[in-house]
Design a protein around this nucleic acid. Structure first.
Length: 606
DNA sequence: ATGCATCGCGCG
DNA sequence: AAAGCGCGCGATGCAT
């Protein structure tokens, strides 16, 4: 089907209090204050037209949306106005901000910045925001005229950016941008409002009780300097400190997992109510997230899912619009309030250790790959080599955890001190104290046993040099030239690139720029980035496949997990379909053993 | 008041 | 020479 390209940009009323920097997109669009000043529309390559407030409805109604490819810069805003205010869902969504971010993820995707980067011509510049329109509901003609001029300029720029970026932009990635926008504008999950409000009230009451029990003011508990003063003056305790890894300066060790803080709590159990109150005051995630969720959901309970396409330079999604659905606490009430609509179920499927598998595959570490393929408990198997005895995953959980931490962390060059610290932090499992010599020996063992992985770090160091040496561009690594080195980037098998903007060697160390800030990069880290990028391609390919099935909608994704809404009948068959689709090996990695675990329930958590 | 950096914490 | 990695949000503290 040949689609009509509809490039579109809404101009809407805003004021000091009522604006997108203070509200989420849905709060802004659903507000009583919401008002469209006008809209700029360009149909295919015809001239852009401005339609003022009174003309908007008719003009939108005249468009055949079943054959429309909607093109916006930041479609999450304009497309949501169409869906929430006009009930309009176009056949296809395109988003030039997403495209720009996909092609150049370390730089700004703002319209003005993208235009500056893409076009030398000074006429291709975004005009300034019209500040004098702020707070004016009904625009006087002369101001509207100016706004219309800027709007048409923005539409023209968006169209020009789209035309410039489209050739060579993979179809699969365009489809993914469409799917991402659809998650927001055509939601399939619902929010259990009553349950969420109940849990929010419980949480608030619980907090109050803890603060009261401690007998310390909230402000004292919340502020590091004030809390330190309180410890010193009222309890006679010297506040624990540490050296900041970021600034190298002394700072209070008040973090939940700071060893000195934990030690202090153990030393003074008589102040337990104070420690509890401090921790509860510092963790407001449940409260804030609950109110964000309530604000995100529609009156028909449907939950619009905001996801940021290509948030990470590895291609991973991120959260956006003040609601991050990619870090919902596991097993929490929050998750349980996200539910399937009547007659449906939530299907959740995730790849088992996909990055560890991808690493073994890329490094050609055959033994490890064989273990994954045959379903061996890889973590227990490596633990067996650490402890020099057969480790059983069930009866030796602590030993298995050490093996797991090793397999997941040591593959990217983690040193023994950090390995030791990770285990003793207890942040991802039981607290395990390894003596220096043992930690060293585990790391040595890993690098020795999986020497091809350690060798891959060295190759990646070479890749960094290739990326900044013109004569070496075009070098490849991996089967069938899987990864192709280009200037400051590595071409991936889906034709997107892993970018290292302004990559350079400074005194023997490599660094690149992300949003203008220097980021260090080295062999082990580059390997990790490559693995993450490759794994991301596997999961998004599967996501698009699943989305094409007519009884399934992908609601969202969390890195190695797909959350879909499907029918209630015959759930095992549906689950099996999803699992099988996800386990199909990519054409560029036909020997990569994939494994998927799935489950279903009426909510996003059992 | 507002913006920016840092820290802490949630997820993968 | 050695270095696990990737996000976003809220609160706080400090600079403007």
């Amino acid at each position: 089907m040949v689609m009509t390209l509809i490039t579109l940009d809404f101009e809407t009323y805003y004021s000091v209090e009522y604006q997108l920097s203070k509200l989420t997109t849905m709060e802004y669009i659903r507000s009583k204050q919401f008002k469209i000043w006008g809209v700029g529309i360009k149909i295919d390559n015809n001239d852009s037209e401005w339609y003022s407030h009174d003309e908007v409805e008719d003009c939108l109604a005249a468009i055949n949306w079943q054959e429309a490819d909607l093109v916006c810069h930041n479609a999450l805003f304009d497309a949501a106005i169409l869906s929430e205010r006009f009930n309009i869902i176009p056949a296809y969504y395109s988003d030039t901000a997403c495209m720009a971010r996909g092609l150049s993820p370390n730089t700004s995707a703002k319209l003005a910045e993208v235009a500056k980067r893409l076009f030398d011509d000074e006429s291709m510049r975004k005009g300034d925001e019209l500040v004098k329109a702020k707070g004016i509901v009904d625009l006087p003609p002369e101001i509207e005229e100016e706004i219309a001029k800027y709007c048409i300029q923005d539409v023209d720029l968006t169209y020009a950016i789209y035309s410039k970026l489209l050739p060579g932009f993979p179809q699969s990635e365009l489809n993914l941008i469409d799917a991402t926008t659809r998650m927001f504008c055509q939601p399939s999950l619902v929010l259990d409002r009553e349950r969420l409000i109940q849990s929010l009230n419980d949480e608030i009451a619980n907090k109050e009780k803890k603060i009261e029990a401690a007998g310390v003011e909230r402000a004292v508990l919340a502020s590091n300097p004030k809390f330190a003063e309180y410890l010193q003056d009222e309890l006679g305790i010297v506040p624990p400190t540490k050296i900041s890894l970021q600034t190298n300066k002394e700072t209070f060790a008040f973090g939940k997992s700071d060893p000195a803080f934990i030690q202090m709590q153990e030393m003074y159990p008589q102040y337990k109510s104070i420690w509890d109150a401090r921790l509860t005051v510092k963790s407001r995630l449940k409260e804030t997230r609950a109110s964000r969720l309530l604000a995100a959901a529609r009156s028909d309970r449907k939950l619009n899912i905001p996801l940021k396409y290509y948030a990470a330079h590895t291609g991973r999604f991120g959260g956006v619009d003040r609601l991050n659905l990619q870090n919902m606490p596991r097993g929490s009430e929050l998750r349980k309030c996200i539910a399937a609509p009547d007659g449906h179920l939530v299907y959740v499927a995730d790849y088992s250790n996909i990055e560890a598998r991808m690493l073994a595959w890329l490094a050609d570490e055959q033994d490890l790959l064989q273990q994954f393929a045959s379903g061996t408990d890889v973590y227990a198997a490596f633990a067996s080599t650490i402890y020099n005895r057969k480790i059983n995953g069930k009866t030796d959980p602590t030993e298995r955890f050490v093996g797991k931490t090793a397999v997941l962390g040591l593959g990217y060059g983690m040193g023994w001190r950090k390995f030791q610290a990770t285990l003793s932090s207890g942040s991802s499992g039981p607290v395990v104290e390894l003596p220096d010599s043992e930690a060293m020996s585990v790391v040595y063992n890993y690098r020795n046993k999986f020497y091809k992985i350690a060798r891959l770090w060295k190759v990646a160091d070479q890749m960094l040099a290739w990326m900044i040496t013109e004569a070496l561009h075009g070098n490849t690594y991996g089967p069938d030239g899987l990864l192709r080195i280009e200037k400051n980037s590595i071409r991936l098998p889906n034709e997107m690139s892993l970018n290292y903007t302004n990559l350079r060697n400074v005194n023997g160390e490599y660094e690149y720029e992300r949003h203008g800030k220097p980021i260090k990069i080295y062999g082990g880290k580059l390997v990790e980035n490559i693995i993450q990028a490759l794994a991301r391609i596997v999961i998004t390919d599967a996501l698009l496949q699943i989305n094409q099935l007519n009884n399934l909608n992908v609601a969202f994704t969390v890195h190695d997990e797909i959350i879909a809404v499907g029918p209630k009948q015959d759930p095992d068959t549906t689950m099996e379909t999803i699992t099988q689709m996800m386990e199909v090996r990519p054409p560029w990695a036909s020997t990569l053993p994939l494994a998927v675990e799935g489950g279903y329930a009426d909510r996003y958590s059992k």
